[in-house]
Amino acid sequence: MGSVWWVVCEVATRVGARNIRPAGRVVRAASPHVRTHPGRRHREEVTRMSSTVELTKENFDQTVLDNDFVLIDFWATWCGPCRQFAPVYEQAAEENPDLVFGKVDTEAQPELAAAFGIQSIPTLMIVRDRVAVFAQPGALPESALTDVIGQARELDMDEVRKSIEEQQAAPDGQ
């Protein structure tokens, strides 16, 4: 499957495509803009956009905490490539009803975009068990998105967590 790209993605953590390193370095940066909300939110409180969930600073943390596998599309209405990617992302959401497909409108949610260091849109991020296992800017074609979802499904998260622990235990942090 090639090298695994991951970073720790805990609640109130900033993750951006520029910060991702091939398996070997954990990047963590706390963000004051994304806060944990006490209590459990009911899934009905999350706004649905067709087969996708509208993610906001109010529901982002709980969505990631409550779900083992979340795909996140950072987008904006004025973005041409975002509009081209939207039907591909929507189709993937319909074909994978067991996964959560979220969308962050970077214009309406600048705090989330800033917290994750989003500098280019669209950016796709995949979070499994609160670990970002994929983040990449650019509109993916259908076949590439299907492949990325398949690779993320096949990841052994115990191995990923073990690798994270080893990296955190390394004396120089690398």
Rank of each mutant, 00 (worst) to 15 (best):
M1D: 11
S3R: 00
W5R: 10
W5I: 12
V7S: 15
C9I: 04
E10L: 12
T13H: 10
R14S: 10
I20H: 06
I20P: 02
R21Q: 08
A23G: 07
A23H: 00
A23S: 05
R25G: 10
R28S: 15
A30Q: 13
S31T: 15
P32R: 06
T36F: 10
T36Y: 12
G39E: 11
R41V: 06
H42M: 10
E44G: 07
E44N: 06
T47L: 06
M49L: 13
S50P: 03
S51I: 03
V53L: 06
V53F: 11
L55M: 05
L55E: 05
T56K: 00
F60Y: 08
D66Y: 07
N67L: 07
V70K: 03
L71P: 02
F74E: 11
C79V: 03
C79E: 07
G80T: 11
Q84Y: 08
V88L: 04
Q91D: 09
E94W: 10
E95A: 15
E95C: 06
N96H: 15
N96F: 13
D98Y: 14
V100Y: 00
A108C: 09
Q109E: 15
P110I: 15
A113N: 04
A113Y: 05
A115K: 02
I118Y: 00
S120T: 11
S120R: 05
I121L: 04
I121Y: 05
P122Q: 13
L124Q: 01
L124I: 12
M125F: 02
I126T: 08
V127P: 01
A132I: 14
V133Q: 00
V133S: 00
F134W: 07
F134E: 00
Q136H: 02
T146Y: 09
V148I: 14
V148R: 03
I149S: 06
G150M: 10
R153T: 07
R153L: 06
R153W: 09
D158E: 11
V160E: 03
K162Q: 15
S163Y: 01
E165P: 02
E166L: 09
Q167V: 11
Q168K: 13
